[in-house]
Simulated scan of single mutants.
Amino acid sequence: MSPTASPAGRSIVSAVHGYVRTSEGEPVSAAVVTLVTSDGRQLDRVESLADGSYLLSAPATGSYLLAASTEGRDARPQAVVIGEAPLVHDLVLEQMRSDPVKRG
């Protein structure tokens, strides 16, 4: 696959796409999905659509971290390996639990 230019002038080698869902399987719209390098540099960021779908571009093949969040829900960053073909990777957002306040 040869690189193509994005509207921002970046070269796109491949992509990662999928769906953001709750642990109950419901789609999550407007979740912020981010692709970052292992050293924390953000490469692409989008909001999931009404059906929970997202699409992020990757400037090169390799290992990245993928994370998603929305108010009240969070997903641990996940390691993904993006090759020349687009990667399909679904994300599950768990309900955030608050720790009980310890009084002493």
Rank of each mutant, 00 (worst) to 15 (best):
A60M: 13
R97F: 06
A75E: 00
E47K: 09
G40R: 00
E94R: 15
V101P: 01
S14N: 06
A5L: 15
S57G: 07
S6H: 13
L43H: 06
S23A: 15
D99N: 13
Q42V: 15
P100H: 07
L66H: 03
A31V: 08
E47P: 00
D90R: 12
P27Y: 04
V33Y: 03
V92S: 07
V33Q: 06
G72R: 09
K102G: 12
P100R: 10
T70S: 14
D44H: 11
L55M: 09
S23M: 05
V33S: 05
P7R: 14
E71S: 12
A75N: 00
A30D: 10
G9F: 10
G25N: 07
R97S: 15
T22S: 12
A8F: 12
V36W: 04
S53T: 15
S98F: 09
V46A: 04
A30Y: 09
V32M: 11
G40S: 02
L93H: 01
T34K: 01
A58I: 06
S38H: 08
L56D: 02
G62A: 06
V28K: 03
D90M: 09
A30K: 12
S53H: 12
S23P: 01
M1A: 15
P86N: 03
P3H: 09
A75T: 00
K102Q: 12
A30M: 11
S98P: 03
V92R: 13
T22L: 04
V88T: 14
Y19F: 14
A60D: 15
R97W: 05
S63L: 13
S38P: 09
L49T: 15
L55Y: 08
T61N: 13
T37K: 07
T4Y: 12
A79N: 05
E26P: 00
R76I: 02
R103A: 09
P27W: 07
L55T: 04
K102F: 14
T4F: 11
R21V: 11
L56T: 01
S23V: 10
A60K: 15
E94Y: 14
L35F: 07
L43Q: 10
V28L: 07
L35N: 09
S69D: 12
R97L: 14
V88L: 11
R76G: 03
R21G: 01
Y54R: 03
G52H: 06
T34H: 00
L56Q: 03
V80R: 03
V32F: 07
D90F: 09
E94P: 02
G52T: 04
I82N: 06
G52Q: 03
G62V: 05
A79M: 08
H17W: 08
D39C: 04
A5N: 08
V88I: 10
L56I: 01
E94K: 15
Y19E: 11
A67K: 11
V16M: 02
V32I: 13
E94M: 14
V81I: 05
S23I: 08
G62P: 02
P86G: 08
D44A: 13
G18D: 00
H89R: 13
L66K: 01
V20C: 03
H89T: 02
A15I: 00
S6E: 11
M1R: 12
S57T: 10
